[in-house]
């Protein structure tokens, strides 16, 4: 559907519709993705201090990150929930990142701040924890490590991480 809309003379300029179709279609992929058990806080707690320099993450196979120009998530929610008032399509001044994933057979979605999106994309791409901290330094400077820890905590809570890979020291 998204590809059809993009390639259609009639719909290719309807960016909100294309974003909506991509968003909706992705839920099918999320729903049907391989099921993996998420790690627990205890798994993180056992990482030796020196091992954090090599720490890499494997995210849920269902994890998808979208970069929306329009208020697509709000539109999708209103339409899906058959709300009486559906928001007017609105173009953002800067793009908004949206996250979709599945944990324990339940599908989830939410928006993300730019710093979290940058960090999560690095995690998804197999970059190590120091690389993620370096990315966050651009947003938070000296508080970057604190922010990384905060994000890691929320990712574990939300069941986004399925594997930790680090040198056992």
């Amino acid at each position: 559907m998204p590809v059809f809309l993009k390639n259609s003379n009639d719909f290719s300029n309807l960016i909100p519709a294309i974003e909506m179709a991509e968003y909706e279609w992705t839920f099918n992929d999320v729903f049907d993705a391989v099921d993996k058990n998420a790690i627990k806080f205890d798994d993180v707690a056992t990482i030796a201090p020196d091992a954090w320099t090599t720490l890499r993450f494997e995210l849920q196979p269902s994890c998808h990150i979208h970069n929306h120009k329009w208020n697509t998530a709000a539109l999708w929610s209103a339409v899906t929930n058959e709300e009486e008032i559906v928001p007017v399509p609105e173009e953002f001044s800067e793009n908004i990142f949206c996250l979709q994933w599945k944990n324990d057979l339940n599908c989830f979605f939410r928006t993300m701040s730019n710093d979290e999106a940058g960090a999560l994309m690095l995690a998804r791409d197999g970059k190590a924890f120091p690389d993620i901290c370096e990315c966050l330094y651009e947003f938070h400077e000296d508080d970057a490590t604190m922010r990384a820890a905060e994000l890691l905590k929320s990712w574990v809570e939300e069941g986004l991480i399925v594997e930790l890979d680090y040198l056992k020291i």
Binding site: D32, D35, P61, L105
Partner: peptide
Amino acid sequence: MVKGGRQLY
């Protein structure tokens, strides 16, 4: 014929 999810469960 999917990789995971409730149907297979």
